[in-house]
Amino acid sequence: MSAPLLAISGLAAGYGGSQVLFGVDLDVSAGEVVSLMGRNGMGKTTTVRALMGLIPLQAGQIRFEGRPIASAPPFRIARSGIGLVPEGRQIFPTLTVEENLIATAAHRNGGAQAWTLARIYAFLPRLAERRRHMGNQISGGEQQMLAIGRALMTNPKLLILDEATEGLAPLIRQEIWDRLATLKREGLAILVIDRTVDALLRLSDRHLILEKGRIVWQGSSQALASDPVARDRYLSV
């Protein structure tokens, strides 16, 4: 097998004096969907922030397509081909839906079929209806779609989603899972953080479980489905 798209090893990071991550190892290969699970406060979002360069690293190596990106500024890491759908959506409230999509759009990595406004609107039709609304005037589900569209418009090779279905109505959750399955079929690599184990079992190729800043379990959907002890121990609340 060729080198993974994203390779994180020995990642340690935290906030101020307190350490949250204690040597996280995590790989995502091209076209692969990997889920990162764990209970509240175990360090999932911190992993994403450290990977994106949003908080300083205490230790560890991060490579994207073989190139080291650890400790680079966030914009360089994003430009290497990572699209972030952050926890809490973080839509720009004073920009319209369309402006949210356009403002940070880019075609840096010259993929075969680049994401354009038209393609995003076809893929996420709710956004087309709302294109002229301000970012803070749309529903939570629409904001989540927008966060996904915004990340896709940077034409990433790896999409990272942090709690993209959190607090949404079942119908919209299902819509998001459907969209992610489509993206997977089109060959996009995805790192997905979520609480909905059943949906992750269907979508992801591999699963990693984070517990107090360490990866304590990893394996395929089959392995996770047949390991109720792990689910009980690491994921139930």
Binding site: L84, T94, T104, R150
Partner: peptide, 25 residues
């Protein structure tokens, strides 16, 4: 303008703008 959009976006959430690939500096 595009730069204007980024300025508005930056005024509300600069870290997010940079996490989407824009050199905020």
């Amino acid at each position: 303008t595009r730069v204007g959009m980024l300025v508005r976006a930056g005024a509300t959430n600069a870290p997010m703008v940079s996490a989407l690939g824009v050199d905020i500096k």
